[in-house]
C-alpha cells in the first residue's frame, strides 16, 4: 500500500525553495518525529537528538535549493543530513544552539509525566547498550544500519541520497549484520 502525502513533498519543497516559511513549517510537522527518532538512535540522548533535529531542519532551510528528493520524498535526504549532523555533533551543536532563537519554555505548567521521563531514561540506557556494540562497526556500516534498518529508509532511496550503489549499501548492512551476529554469539559464549 502506498501513502500519498498532501501536499506532496515535491510541492512543499518547491515552495520551500522559494522561501515559503509555511511550507517549511509543514515539512517540520511532517518529519520532525522521524528525524528526532533517527537522531536519537545515532546519539543515544533525547536532548542531543533535539539539537540534531533542529540543526537538520536549519540545514534544510539553508540548503533548500540543493536538496535531492528521492522518489518525491524529502525524508531520506533529511535523515542523511541528520546523520551527518550527528557525526559532527560534538563540534557543531554549540554553533547551532547559538544560532537558534530560543523561545521561553513553560516548564512549570507542562512538566513531563513521571512515566514519560522514566521511559525516556530507559530508552537512553537501552540505546547506550546498543550503541556500545554498534560503535565497533565501521562508520559507514553503522550509518547504513541506522538509516536502513532502524529508520526503515528503503535501500534504493538511501543509496540515491548517499551517492552510492544500492548493492554497496546492501553490502554494508549485510556486513554489519554479520559482525553483530558474531559479537552476539561471542558475548553469549563468554557469559556461559
Amino acid at each position: 500500500m502506498t501513502t500519498r502525502l498532501h501536499p506532496p513533498d515535491q510541492e512543499l519543497w518547491s515552495a520551500l525553495a522559494g522561501g515559503d516559511e509555511a511550507a517549511f513549517g509543514q515539512l517540520f510537522d511532517r518529519y520532525a518525529r522521524a528525524v528526532h527518532n533517527h537522531a536519537f538512535r545515532l546519539c543515544g540522548s533525547w536532548s542531543v537528538a533535539e539539537d540534531i533535529t533542529q540543526a537538520t531542519f536549519l540545514v534544510a532551510w539553508r540548503r533548500r535549493g540543493e536538496a535531492r528528493l528521492v522518489d518525491g520524498s524529502a525524508l531520506p535526504w533529511l535523515l542523511v543530513v541528520a546523520t551527518n549532523t550527528a557525526r559532527t555533533e560534538w563540534r557543531s551543536a554549540r554553533r547551532w544552539r547559538a544560532l537558534l532563537r530560543r523561545v521561553p519554555q513553560e516548564r512549570e505548567a507542562h512538566a513531563d509525566p513521571a512515566d514519560e521521563v522514566v521511559g525516556r531514561l530507559d530508552d537512553e540506557r537501552r540505546m547506550a547498550s546498543v550503541l556500545s556494540a554498534v560503535r565497533r562497526l565501521p562508520r559507514a556500516e553503522r550509518e547504513a544500519v541506522a538509516l536502513c534498518l532502524w529508520s526503515g529508509v528503503p535501500y534504493a532511496e538511501a543509496a540515491a541520497v548517499l551517492g552510492i550503489s544500492e548493492v554497496a549499501l546492501r553490502s554494508r548492512v549485510s556486513r554489519a549484520r554479520a559482525r553483530l551476529a558474531r559479537k552476539f554469539s561471542t558475548d553469549n559464549r563468554q557469559e556461559q
Binding site: E21, F24, G25, F28, D29, A32, R33, H36, N37, F40, E50, T53, Q54, F57, L58, W61, L99, L100, R101, R102, V103, Q105, E106, H110, D112, E116, G119, R120, D123
Partner: peptide
Amino acid sequence: RDLPARQVTRMRAELLST
C-alpha cells in the same frame, strides 16, 4: 517515541523565528 506536543511547538517556533 512521539515528540511531546509542547516540545514540537517550541522547536517549531524556534526554527521559524530563526
